[in-house]
Design a protein around this nucleic acid. Sequence first.
DNA 1: TCAAAGTCTTGCTCTAGGGCAAGAATTGGG
DNA 2: CCCAATTCTTGCCCTAGAGCAAGACTTTGA
Lengths: 196, 196
Amino acid sequence: MPKTNPGAFDQLFAYFSKTAPISRPEFEQLIPYFEPVFFPKYSYLLRQGEICNSIYFVSQGSFRIYHIHENGQELTRYFAFANKFGTNLTSMIEGSPSVENLQAIEPLDVLEVKKQVFFELVERIPQVNKIYLNILQNAYITSQKRIYDLQGMPALDRLRWLLEQYPLILSRIPSRMIASYLGITPYTLSRLKSEI
Amino acid sequence: MPKTNPGAFDQLFAYFSKTAPISRPEFEQLIPYFEPVFFPKYSYLLRQGEICNSIYFVSQGSFRIYHIHENGQELTRYFAFANKFGTNLTSMIEGSPSVENLQAIEPLDVLEVKKQVFFELVERIPQVNKIYLNILQNAYITSQKRIYDLQGMPALDRLRWLLEQYPLILSRIPSRMIASYLGITPYTLSRLKSEI
DNA sequence: TCAAAGTCTTGCTCTAGGGCAAGAATTGGG
DNA sequence: CCCAATTCTTGCCCTAGAGCAAGACTTTGA
């Protein structure tokens, strides 16, 4: 049984502090709803077709969200690194089968909140409501940026754009996944790397 | 002074009814916050660089949200038809300058709510809070669909995909704008039309 | 520690879609 | 109702990036 990251709740408290400030005692009340879970590298938090029943706060490591098209080609939409919430929002909101896979790409420590619990907290605790609004807003803004910044831009510029946002990404994450995020083939990515 | 669509508030009430049911008297209380406004064809609700100060409920006509890249090329991200809310969420949420233009593409009747008023209502009126959550969720889901369904798909399939969602769009809206939504040139769109 | 499996690079060829130009069709203002 | 100004179509050529194949380089696990 691998032991999970001990600082996780401090990180979560810090997250609250900057998004929806909360007193220590109030925060302590919430702790029982967040369960520390460890996922080995390349294991799945959720697979295509399943219904997403949890939301995750990453305390260490990273995971990605990706989809496999009918033609077999794979498209990565999001990388979740430390101190980010991540889930399949669409599936969680609609209760519909996920069209996405959530996969750990490094050994991953998360705090998991069950969907039903989470939505109860959203209703009951104003700070959690605010956190949820914030998650939705950021998810939205991120996906807008992705559309504008990637569509119509040549592949090299897209790579540069990604490196600006995640300078370490090329060393942490397999190229395949990066290529699938940028919407290019690994061949092309490999060629682009030599052009900085 | 063109007169605005008289059924607007009935449409808004219908929208509430299916998203966040509200009693007639409660609804009447909200009416003063929604101002009917008419925009002529091709006029702008908001231009790139301005801060978005309102959210709009379309009662008749349509508008689009688009962006102009540095290289001059234009990218349409969203078409808002009757009975949809539309705004530049990012600019409205962050108070940041809009990177998008909102432009009427047909003679347009909207109900306008000022941003500050809207956020007050979101705090104060549970049904409006729910509507707002719903707007964010849908905006998010729509933009996810756009990413998955458009990225990596050949242009003809993308066109078919669009026509499934908006069968009338080709007859209502100039091709230029549709091309810029699909991320292809008007030349290519023109050629594709002949292949159904 | 070494083999087997996966991943990355790189040469070559091929194709979807871009972009120009010129003509046809549509639209709208006077 | 007609002319001017857009917008749409289509022939042509061109380019970015796809895809295959073969070899190099890395990981993994027994």
